[in-house]
């Protein structure tokens, strides 16, 4: 029998709130695509208990905001069980969750809470930025023997990109240079990778050569490609959607500051959400999250000021 199954709210006939599991119920049936009551703590507990006893669940939390209701099971149970029990158990599950603003859904349906989980030993945190990565990283997360929080940006659901055929794994904890360049490094996550690449294209026409690095797995982080890039360019711009205070950018800045890259660093900078809840108003919502033009401006300033 296969050990992988999908469980969550409206993942069955409905196909998931964002259509991610569309058609899976028809293909695999109610035993492997399981609709749950509105019980986010229960869903996290289901995944943990099933993983503890031989299954490989994929749980969905419908909006990342709702993961706040699952925190105890994720942070105090799933993440710590292996350690607390002296390494005698494994908890292999994937918890997928749509995150991010840009849909007009206001403050309780737009969160980017990835760094809460980065702070927890025992959890892995993955944030794909391309279609090919989404497939390869998801399969790698399912094969991984640890609990993995898999954060999918809602706006990326609408993007297209080449995806290799067949079964392949994109290894976790491998940062990737998405675009090589020599003048400035942009370290970006999730949707911000796409925006950074677009910014890089615009800046290329001004003669500014941007390197874009995507950590892809935030925890455990693969720091080397980031450090190498900053050593090369001497300038780094960190871009993520989550709020600045306590955000992943601070961690990236620390990693860079502690490394040899610090000696090469002429100018650091960051772009992130303003420290406020996500507003409903279209213009306000747009302003609070880094846009392509903000990234272009910040990167240009870095290069000009540090010249």
């Amino acid at each position: 029998m296969t050990r992988v199954f999908l469980v969550g709210e409206d993942v069955g006939v409905y196909g998931g709130a964002f259509g991610v599991s569309d058609g899976l119920f028809q293909k695999y049936g109610p035993e492997r695509v399981l609709d749950t009551p509105i019980s986010e703590a229960g869903i996290a507990g289901l995944a943990t208990g099933a993983a503890l006893t031989g299954m490989r669940p994929i749980a969905e939390i419908q909006f990342m905001d709702f993961i706040t209701l699952s925190m105890e099971q994720l942070v105090l149970q799933a993440a710590k069980l292996r350690f607390m029990l002296g390494g005698k158990v494994t908890v292999p599950f994937v918890l997928r969750t749509p995150a991010g603003a840009g849909t007009g859904a206001a403050a309780q349906h737009s969160e980017s809470l990835e760094n809460w989980f980065v702070h927890v030993p025992g959890l892995k945190v993955v944030m794909p930025s391309t279609a090919a990565d989404a497939k390869g990283l998801l399969l790698a997360a399912i094969e991984d023997p640890n609990p993995v929080i898999f954060v999918e940006h809602k706006l990326l659901y609408r993007t297209k990109g080449p995806v290799p055929e067949g079964y392949y794994l994109t290894p976790l904890s491998r940062s990737e240079v998405k675009r090589p360049g020599k003048d400035v490094t942009i370290v970006a996550t999730s949707l911000m990778v796409a925006r950074a690449l677009e910014a890089a294209t615009q800046l290329a026409s001004e003669g500014i050569d941007v390197e874009v690095v995507d950590p892809r797995t935030l925890k455990p982080l693969d720091p080397d490609p980031i450090i190498e890039s900053v050593c090369k360019t001497g300038r780094v711009l960190i871009v993520h959607e989550a709020v600045k205070t306590g955000g992943f950018g601070g961690e990236l800045a620390a990693v860079i500051a502690e490394s040899e890259a610090f000696d090469f660093l002429d100018a650091p900078s960051g772009g992130w959400r303003v420290d406020i809840p996500v507003p409903y108003n279209r213009d306000l919502e747009r302003r609070m999250v880094p846009q392509v033009e903000n990234i272009v401006d910040a990167a240009r300033r870095l290069v000009k000021e540090a010249r």
């Binding site: 029998m1 503890l52 099971q73 105090l76």
Partner: peptide, 25 residues
């Protein structure tokens, strides 16, 4: 499968174990 430092901490997991046992027949 373990004692627990959190009140009701094991209770949600129990449903998961039960689901796992049922799925594996």
């Amino acid at each position: 499968l373990g004692a627990n430092g959190i009140v009701a901490g094991g209770v949600p997991m129990a449903a998961g174990v039960g689901l796992s046992l049922k799925m594996q027949k």
